[in-house]
Design a protein around this nucleic acid. Structure first.
Length: 566
RNA sequence: GGACCAGUAGCCUAGUCUGGAUGCGUUCAGAGCCAGAAAGGGCGUCGGCCUUCUAAGCCGAAGAUCGGGGGUUCGAAUCCCUCCUGGUCCA
């Protein structure tokens, strides 16, 4: 980055453009032979009314290269800068070695960000959609922390409402007081599916559910006891699944504790004249001019709806943690809801309204269509982990004979790596179809591909015990694949910052692929241990040591382990 | 009825916010004129590479009207308009 700054300063002297404008225009040429940085002269062409190639020529004549810039050339409409590659290499390599696990991290921002995820319902186990949510949440927390933010992960448990009563009713009717004979959240989920099957033939069950909900809200002892029992089972199951995925929260909010709140906020808004009562007496907000229509905020009977409690929760969160930003990781089908929520918070004059962000992610479909919890047509979060591990085990057995302990360890690392990477490599916004047969792959753009590059480097470094990264002195690189790697290493913090700003872990996943790809090219073309001479050998050892460090840092951000052997 | 998101090879995906990659003729050079330049990966397919640091790898080949049409521009996958298809949400 220092190099770019130098080029910007040079250009500033010779053009009438500001630093920002220059910085935005500067590109990295498609082909490395063209130069290391390029300034396209089209911007100037319009203003000077001259052909960009002529401007480039003129600038090339006027700008005298100074170290570390070794040459400035006009090539077509581009002014291309060449930098002393070995100087760049040395700077980058030393920086990576010095920073280690922190390489790529950004300075502290002294700002707090809350991230809410994955917000499960206590009537059914977590499924593939939650898996995407958890993985995105984990990765975003890691990336934000690496980008210098203080991160507060929280959860919102949806533990009340009609849907919860459905599994409760089914258990009451047909459960026979049994204790779970399987993972407890799965046990609860089975009754949810059972209810939905039974209600097809017995529509009167719907009325019973409503009655049960009313009793629950009235504090009926029997219903509350049942609720506590089943909620406890669900939460116990979630805890296990969270552990499997490495999800930790600083605080958990429960809907059962907040669902009656928010009324005061709405009434306050009504007093201020922000909202109005419709003919039936419900409190409404008119968001027509925002293109969001009219929304009910409080029912005519004075009871709240989702948005009512969400207004309260938003406020409570800020009161609890005084954070600067609040990110909600929720599927994109709720986009409208959050637009309304944030707009209403803004109308109410809450200063943090503008700092709320809904990270909407796309749905995952099955080959046969949408997942349906009600019918039990889902891919269960725990099952998919087992499936991935099983396939990983097969792949490992194809290549190695390992003892039990080592096999268990590797199938966990590789299977989870494949699953996490598979989901995180997609842009969060995109919907995609999960096809069990086709999706579980260990070749090509996958987690194991990146892990494999890491393991290969470890394998080389294991064979060279004398190498000490602290003692790296003179470095020398000649091969294009070496410079390609160095450039990528230099770009890592830019990737981190882009990923943090846009909430896109996929940027980090893509980056790790590029780095692994570049390493594999290098690996096939440049011998390390059998390099021509000691200087080249040491330089390459230092280089792959750095690649290893950065691969690992990138995988860490995605919550994927970097194995030393595969 | 309204809103949002997506559409890139047989399949999947990056790039889209912030539009650009080395042309031809003439000329000593410049001006002028004519033009508008190469869309990355992966899977799958075909062909090569393990007496050489782990072949979960590498190299090569074939494969793309960037959903259709129009517009803006010297230049559009990218910006604007419109239509089509799929998805989601609101009423």
């Amino acid at each position: 980055m220092e190099f770019k700054q130098k080029i910007i300063r040079l250009l500033k002297k010779h053009t009438f453009l500001g630093e920002d404008e220059i910085s935005r225009a500067i590109e990295i040429p498609r082909l490395p032979e063209l130069g290391d940085f390029a300034f396209p002269c089209f911007v100037l062409a319009k203003k000077l009314k001259k052909s960009p190639s002529i401007i480039a020529e003129e600038l090339a004549k006027r700008i005298k290269p100074k170290p570390p810039i070794s040459d400035v050339k006009a090539q077509g409409p581009y002014l291309n800068f060449f930098i002393d590659k070995n100087k760049l290499a040395e700077q980058v390599i030393k920086e990576v070695i010095r920073c280690g696990a922190c390489y790529g991290s950004l300075p502290l921002k002294h700002k707090k960000v809350m991230v809410e995820y994955p917000a499960p319902n206590t009537n059914k186990p977590l499924h593939l959609g939650h898996v995407r949510n958890m993985l995105l949440g984990n990765a975003i927390c890691n990336i934000l922390a690496f980008a210098g933010y203080e991160v507060i992960p929280v959860d919102l448990v949806n533990d009340r409402g009609v849907h919860i009563c459905k599994s409760m009713l089914a258990y009451k009717k047909w459960g026979g007081g049994e204790e779970p004979d399987k993972k407890p959240d799965h046990f609860v989920g089975d009754y949810y599916v059972l209810y939905n099957r039974k209600v097809e033939e017995h529509p009167e069950l719907e009325q019973e559910v409503q009655d049960m909900l009313r009793k629950w809200e009235a504090g009926d002892k029997e219903v509350i006891a049942l609720w506590k029992k089943m909620r406890g089972w669900a939460l116990k199951g979630f805890k296990q699944t969270y552990a499997l995925f490495g999800v930790h929260h600083k605080k958990v909010y429960y809907e059962s504790e907040i669902y009656q709140h928010g009324k005061e906020i709405v009434l306050e808004g009504l007093r201020k004249g922000l909202f109005y009562k419709n003919e039936e007496g419900a409190i409404m907000v008119d968001l027509e001019k925002d293109g969001l229509g009219k929304k009910v905020l409080l029912r005519k009977d004075g009871t709240g709806i989702y948005i009512t409690q969400d207004l309260y929760l938003a406020k409570k969160k800020f009161d609890d943690f005084k954070m600067d930003k609040s990110v909600y990781i929720v599927g994109n089908e709720q986009k409208y809801h959050f637009q309304v929520l944030f707009r209403v918070l803004e109308m109410l004059g809450f200063p943090y309204a503008k700092q709320c962000y809904h990270l909407a992610y796309g749905m995952i479909y099955l080959p046969e269509g949408r997942m349906k919890s009600r019918e039990g047509k889902i891919v269960d979060a725990d099952d998919i982990v087992e499936e991935m591990k099983r396939v990983a085990e097969d792949e490992i057995k194809k290549r190695h004979t390992l003892d039990y302990k080592e096999l268990e360890k590797r199938k966990e690392i590789i299977g989870m790596g494949a699953l996490k990477f598979f989901i995180l490599k997609y842009d969060p916004m995109k919907d995609f179809t999960y096809n069990p047969e086709e999706s579980i792959s260990f070749e090509g753009e996958t987690g194991p591909y990146v892990q494999y590059a890491h393991a290969r480097i470890c394998s080389i470094l294991r064979k060279e015990k004398k190498f000490n990264p602290e003692k790296v002195k003179k470095l020398e690189y000649k091969h294009p694949t070496e410079f390609k790697l160095i450039k990528l290493l230099a770009d890592f913090s830019k990737t981190v910052s882009d990923a943090a700003e846009n909430y896109k872990p996929s940027f980090v996943a893509r980056y790790s692929l590029e780095l692994a790809q570049a390493f594999n090219e290098f690996y096939h073309e440049c011998p390390v241990l059998k390099a021509d001479n000691n200087k080249v050998r040491d330089s390459r050892l230092a280089l792959i040591f750095c690649v290893k460090t950065v691969l690992r840092n990138a995988l860490d951000l995605l919550g994927i382990e970097a194995p030393e052997e595969m």
